[in-house]
Design a protein around this nucleic acid. Structure first.
Lengths: 214, 214
DNA sequence: CCGCGCCTCCCCCGCGCGGGGGATTGAGAA
DNA sequence: TTCTCAATCCCCCGCGCGGGGGAGGCGCGG
């Protein structure tokens, strides 16, 4: 067997901390190495204790979980972070997830489930509560609002407009005159109601007409 | 108690179908109402049987799971779909998820976990295998934005560069001179090695320095 | 047949912008 | 203290680009 998983618990409610610690200590391969009552203290504890994973409450005095997670990400990008919250799931989860946390669970989670979640996260996977996952899925699905008023040729030009090429260079690539490209570009800008090339490309990407190849 | 959950199993391997059916029938609140050996047959079965959820294998002859899921989505958007696959997780999962399935599990899943997944999905939640979830998360937080060579002020200017505002207008907004903004912009372009404002913004978005607010 | 949309090409104008210089201040590191 | 660097401001130049105009050919549907 490998070393036990070192866990730091950060929550402003002592009863929650104690409860979590008790549950987790029942597992032989889990080791609660520290507790903290807010983000500021939790951050210090995390940086000195170097746990494998930090269970962090979202709402706390002094420094909230998101702020702490952000700071922790910068200081120690490898440390896993699992966020603990109530049961509300609003759009702020995306801000949270964009911080780069690996786990997101609710406080009413089943102990066995939490243990599994911790293992998953420490193993480099990610664990989100299904309700949160649903929201995330909904975000990547919304997909293709097919607002295509552009002709095929204009779509092609639009693709090229997302490149560093000047209209003259695009014209060479397409084997037409620069004036033709500029003419298409003008029509595109007008149709999309965008003031310039940069905004047109940005707008196109937002409405999924273009995909960022990267 | 409510009625049992009606399940349709679609897999080209009889042994998998039988195995799944056997495991699921052990649960009193689960009811396997049908089996099918490929997407085409599965689609017909789904539309006639109206199960609560369809467990669908990804790779099948005649019609694969993704095609079936897509067709099923159009015919009966409320029916839940859980995709079953091997253990490979490549970028095609995003095509799959964009179809709008609610579940994505591997065939080597623990029976108890599968049961929980089915319940979660039928309850309107979503269930993804942690490895898949990790990939999805990586998509919305492609994470580790280490490439921050920009100063805070430059980041601020970069944000504004993603707007239709001219440098002069940005300067007014920030309460500084146009020359200052242009100076920052020049430094940004040089640091990012981008030829112009449009490419800088695009590039910034690709490396997630900027997020498309939409 | 005739109109209409699409693609092609052309001209002019003015300004936003990229790229090249440089200067000053203040904060923080060496 | 000295030196670096972020942040501020200034000048000049040339070109890419947005916006305005117009025109001809071609295919397609009424």
């Amino acid at each position: 067997m490998t070393d036990p998983i070192r866990i730091l618990i950060v929550d402003d409610h002592a009863v929650v901390r104690k409860g979590l610690a008790m549950v987790l200590r029942l597992e032989p391969d889990l080791d609660v190495v520290g507790e903290a009552e807010n983000g500021r203290v939790g951050l210090e504890a995390a940086l000195s204790l170097h746990p494998d994973i930090a269970l962090v409450d979202l709402v706390m005095p002094e420094m909230d979980g998101q702020t702490m997670a952000l700071a922790l990400r910068k200081s120690d990008p490898k440390m896993k972070i699992m966020m603990l919250t109530g049961t509300e799931v609003d759009d702020r989860v995306f801000d949270l997830l964009s911080v780069g946390i690996e786990g997101y669970v609710f406080k009413n989670i089943e102990p066995a489930e939490l243990v599994r979640a911790i293992h998953a996260v420490v193993n480099g996977e990610a664990y989100l509560h299904p309700a949160v996952m649903k929201k995330v899925l909904g975000k990547i699905q919304p997909q293709s609002a097919p607002f295509v008023l552009l002709t095929p040729r204009e779509m092609e030009i639009l693709d090229w407009m997302a490149t560093p090429n000047t209209y003259k260079q695009i014209a060479v690539q397409l084997g037409v005159s620069e004036e033709t490209v500029r003419s298409h570009a003008k029509n595109i800008l007008e149709k999309m109601k965008q003031p310039n090339r940069a905004q047109a490309v940005l707008s196109a990407m937002k409405m999924k007409l273009l995909k960022l190849n990267g």
